[in-house]
Write a protein that binds this DNA or RNA. Structure first.
Lengths: 146, 146
DNA sequence: CTGCATGCAAACCTTTTGCAAGACT
DNA sequence: AGTCTTGCAAAAGGTTTGCATGCAG
């Protein structure tokens, strides 16, 4: 089996978890697809590399990665779950309801909100992955949703 | 059949939609339960009034209300959908990841964010129903999630 | 009366799980 | 060598749908 370079693999190894070929393939798929992807999308990508990896294993591996806090899970208001690597700092998403376009924005913009929620409600917001729906620039210019 | 007072019924009538007994019962249930409720919860409440109403009808009615923009749908990061009447102004939710407690907060707190997103990304945020996860006061005091 | 709404049950979609066989450390 | 992981297929949970019947307007 080829040597596969993957930060996820290293993470797993350093935490003493087993690195199976399936996991390696799944990690590669996640890293290759980069962004917010469904289990199904990961599965499809994995299938291209090795069609004998099962969807159940994809789910089980995603579960593992969630436990290890290496990925996060969102659903953008849709029925399936979306997964993404936690490789960059806390950020959020603007999801265009019109065209589905997804853009990231930094967490810093939420500072005032966090402060305010704490002050007003004693609530400690874990705003590490929020989705805000609305209209992107493009769709606004096209006059959508007006 | 009794006359049932319901603003949803009136809305439906005024839009020329059929008002069936099932719909009336479902509307009452939604109005009675008030807040964020699942289809299942509505169904249970409906069953108390008339056990012959089917779950499918509950779903179909919810779909109708969504189309008519009389309710909104969220899922609070869980697998089922939650529905709520759109009868009070835009608001959002603080969802405690620890105990599941849900608290509302006014939309006004989002003003700065909206402005900022518009300025920075040209994004018109439709923040009419956002869920922010975190720890509620109670769970923080109990030292949860530390 | 006509067309829309309903109930039932089956289909659907995504995700989870039991179990025996197999692979990683 | 032992334990963890896998594949398969079935189950599970939530939601949707086809079809014949029934009811609102």
């Amino acid at each position: 089996m080829d040597r596969i370079s993957s930060s996820l693999i290293e993470e797993l190894q350093s935490r003493g978890m087993r690195v199976t070929p399936q996991r390696a393939i799944i990690f590669e798929a996640i890293e290759k697809l980069e962004g917010h992807i469904t289990a199904e999308e990961i599965f499809e990508q994995v299938q291209k590399v090795n069609p004998y990896v099962s969807l159940a294993t994809v789910y089980r591996t995603l579960e593992l990665l969630l436990e290890l806090n290496l990925i996060n899970q969102t659903n953008f208001g849709r029925s399936q779950a979306y997964f993404a690597l936690k490789d960059h700092g806390p950020h959020h998403h603007l999801v265009c309801s019109e065209c589905g376009y997804i853009e990231e924005f930094a967490d810093t913009i939420f500072e005032p909100i966090r402060t305010e929620l704490d002050k007003q409600y004693g609530f400690q917001a874990q705003t590490d992955h929020l989705s805000i729906f609305g209209l992107c620039r493009g769709c606004r210019e096209k006059g959508a949703g007006g």
